[in-house]
């Protein structure tokens, strides 16, 4: 097979894979996060079952990406009027996940399953098992650099299990290929004065799957979100919203 044929074959396979994942998103209706501000940020207008989401900490680990990930998980976890409550699985390497803080964000501890994996191999396996299970609605983990095959396995597992996988990652992974349907960059707003709570700049980097698989016509954008400490409500600050032209993203 010539070099051109190999490239063409790989491009075809990539397109097929992308189409397959895109069908999942088209087939599954989005589920509201319980925060209208977050729904307006997410490309599908909410969470799509069977997909992965990447939350990137823009600076260090204290940027707050996991907090937003948990807030967005609330819509699937909280008991709805007609349906049962969902389950959030937290797959943690060092066991430092603090459930009391999650409860402060409005997530009931009764709906949380904690999985502590000692080694990297066990962590990858555990995350795949959790994603594959129909009993789990949202699976959350902290992932550094990730092997492409493992990432793909997780994406397929999420598709099979029908839950949503949330990966909290550092900005070092920018530029790496991703099997997540959406990648969001979270940066804390520094030194801005307001009544109480926390503010973030959230930049939606991609709404497709695979390297360069952005949706046609999809524009990256950045919004400002504010979490109220007392009410736990999330607010979008529309006057500061701005659109980033396509092509200037730092993503791969």
């Amino acid at each position: 097979m010539s070099r051109q044929d190999t490239i063409k074959d790989l491009a075809d396979r990539l397109r097929r894979m992308e189409r397959r994942v895109a069908r999942v998103e088209d087939r599954e209706p989005s589920v509201g996060t319980g925060h209208a501000a977050l729904d307006s940020v997410l490309p599908a207008g909410g969470l799509v079952r069977g997909t992965l989401l990447e939350w990137i900490n823009g600076e260090g680990p204290g940027s707050g990406a996991a907090t937003l990930a948990l807030l967005s998980a609330g819509g699937l976890i909280r008991r709805q009027d007609s349906g049962p409550a969902g389950t959030l699985a937290v797959v943690d390497r060092d066991g430092g996940f603090y459930t009391a803080a999650a409860a402060g964000l409005g997530l009931s501890p009764e709906g949380i399953l904690l999985v502590r994996a000692g080694t990297e191999g066990e962590w990858k396996w555990a995350m795949e098992q959790v994603l594959r299970s129909p009993a789990i609605d949202v699976a959350l983990t902290w992932a550094g650099s990730l092997d492409d095959r493992v990432f793909r396995r997780w994406q397929l597992a999420a598709e099979l299990g029908g839950g949503v996988g949330m990966l909290v990652r550092s900005s070092e992974v920018m530029g790496q290929a991703s099997w997540a349907s959406t990648r969001l960059m979270v940066r804390g707003c520094v030194g801005e004065e307001w009544a109480g709570g926390r503010r973030w700049r959230v930049r939606v980097l991609s709404g497709g799957v695979g390297r360069g698989a952005w949706r046609a016509g999809y524009q990256e954008r950045e919004v400002l979100l504010e979490l109220n400490d007392e009410t736990g409500g999330l607010r979008l600050l529309p006057r500061l919203e701005r659109t980033v032209p396509p092509g200037v993203s730092a993503a791969g």
Binding site: T67, Y98, A100, A101, G197, D229
Partner: peptide, 8 residues
């Protein structure tokens, strides 16, 4: 409150 305890 919502932001007074750390997640980790």
């Amino acid at each position: 409150g919502a932001v007074t305890r750390p997640l980790r």
